[in-house]
Structure formats: structure tokens, C-alpha cells
Amino acid sequence: MKIQTLGWLIGFTALVSSTSILACSQAVVACQAGHAGSGFAFAAKYFPVGAPGAACTASGDEIGLETYHPPGGGDDGKQPDFSVPAILAIQTDAMGVLIANKASLPNASIDPDGTNVENKDGTHTLAKHPPYALGPFTAVEPDADGFCIVTAPAPAVQDFPAEAAIAPDPTAMPPDPGAPAVEAETVKYEWSNVKVYATAAAQGTQFSGHVKFTDNACTAEYNVAAVWPSVDCTARDANGSPVLGTDMKAQPVQAACCPTADPLGGRVTGSGINPDFPVSCQQIAQDGTYRCALNISDPTKLPALDPGWDAKVDACKLTAAAP
């Protein structure tokens, strides 16, 4: 009898105890952002705040994000430590383009790395600030709303020195036209309240934030809403140059922002943007070309999710087969 009871006990304990183990929910995604290193930036739309500054406002930009981990993991302490929050870097394309332009001047002394300046004569001087904003997430995992927050990253700052003019030299072969004087320029991006949206379905592919842009005396402030990856939806020719419309400006191609492939219509693959993100082709790049950006009016109300949005857009209807 005792054995019999023991046997029943085993059977029932098995089932009862196993049901109590259950309710283990799946692991939550770690804080991350769409990587600039994979070749894609975020397509960011700028929503001006306060009085619009005159000369230096912009409609948007391409912004590269990247995450980093400190060492300290693994048995030897040398592997990346995933138990502490990751660090986020934010670099705007405008800053990178400015640095590249300054570096190409004949009298420039800029190293776009930002941490170290290699002068033309081979000597080195340390740069004062990096061209990207840098700061840690507040937590390893997203909060209850799915946001990974960086409250106040260190700002991106570049101090470009004044350059003296170079006199022309008509006797040189070929003649040297010289170079005009360049005034000193300090460019700053001060970010705050950066929130990256990360869930299992959308892994760090939307972010919002507040940025104050300064270029010498000119200041502009924006709320930013960005989506990853940045997809170029400008009409371009075979060489990659924008096809200009009758107004001599670049033209948008709405269909390039559709998430599904349309082989019969010439769209090889979908846009590569999460199909639930409502996007439209907008002129946000600072050279006047178009990118697929979030189709929203309030950048502080992320995430922007609208499954099936493309079914209501004419440009995204699939091409019928030729009879």
C-alpha cells in the first residue's frame, strides 16, 4: 500500500509542480539601436521648437547611432559585459559632411576621427571634442513602454579653427588660385531625452529626442523622430544623380517606401523598414533629397505603429501581371 501511495504521489507531484513552473515569460530584448555600422543611418525628421532660427534650420537629417559595451564579462573578464547598460553614440550626417568639407580645404588641419588630429605636416594635435554625442542608457532593458532612454549624452562639438587666406600665385605651374580666409566656426549638437524604442518586433528601429543645434551665433531647437534604416526614395538616374523635375529640384518616389517587394513593378525588395511603421517619402536630407521618414505629426508620441498602413496607400499597390 505504501508503495502504491508513493507511486501516486510521484505522478501527481510531477504534474502539479510542473504546472507551477510555467508562466515563465520570454526574455526581453536588450537595449540596442539600429547600427550605423551596417551601412544605414536613421532617417530623422526635425520638428522645430520655439522661435525658428533663420539661417540654420533644417527639415531633417540622416543620423547614425551605434551602441557599445564595456569589458568585464566572461570568466576572464575580457568579454563584453552585457549586464551593465550599453553606451549610445549619435552622429548627425551634417556634422560629418561639415568635417569632411573642412578637411578638404587646402589649409585644413582636421582629423574626422575627432579624437586625434593628424596635421598635414605629420604632427598630431588632440582635438577638443568628438563629432558624436555619447552617453549610457539608463538601464539594460527597455522600460515598461519599450523605451531605452539616454537622458543627457555628452554633446557633439567641433571647433573648427580660423584659416588664414592663401595668396594666389600666378607664377606657379599651373597657376595657384589661392584660398580665401575661413573664419572660426564652433558647431554643437546638444541632445536630451533620447528615447530608443526596442521590442522583439522592433529592435531599436525608432528613436525620438530633443536637440539644440548651434553654429557660431545661430541656434535652432528641434524635437526629432527617426526611423531605421534610412531609405533613399529620391528619383535617380543610372549614375545615382537625382533626376530633376520641372522645378529643377529632386523628386520623391513614394513607392520606394513600401515595405513589400513588387517584382512585377520593378521593386526588387521591400523598403527594409519594419512593415508596421507608417512612413512616407519626405525631403529631410540636407542636400534636398528625399528619405522615407515617419509619417507622424507629434514626434513625442512614439512608437509610431500602424500595421497595414501600406494597404491604404496607392503607391504601394502591387503591380498586376501582364496578360
Partner: peptide, 25 residues
């Protein structure tokens, strides 16, 4: 990877992110 918007100019990283799981799998 000298796209002008990449904080990395020399190095690129791949992997290292945990693959997310559908909560309703």
C-alpha cells in the same frame, strides 16, 4: 565605413546583440 554619419570611422561591429524572441512564441 566612412559614411559621414557613422561614429565609427575605422571599425565595424557585427553580432553581439541578443536575438529577440516573440513574447507569444
Amino acid at each position: 565605413f566612412n559614411t559621414t554619419n557613422n561614429p565609427n570611422q575605422i571599425w565595424n561591429r557585427t553580432g553581439g546583440d541578443k536575438v529577440p524572441i516573440d513574447p507569444d512564441v
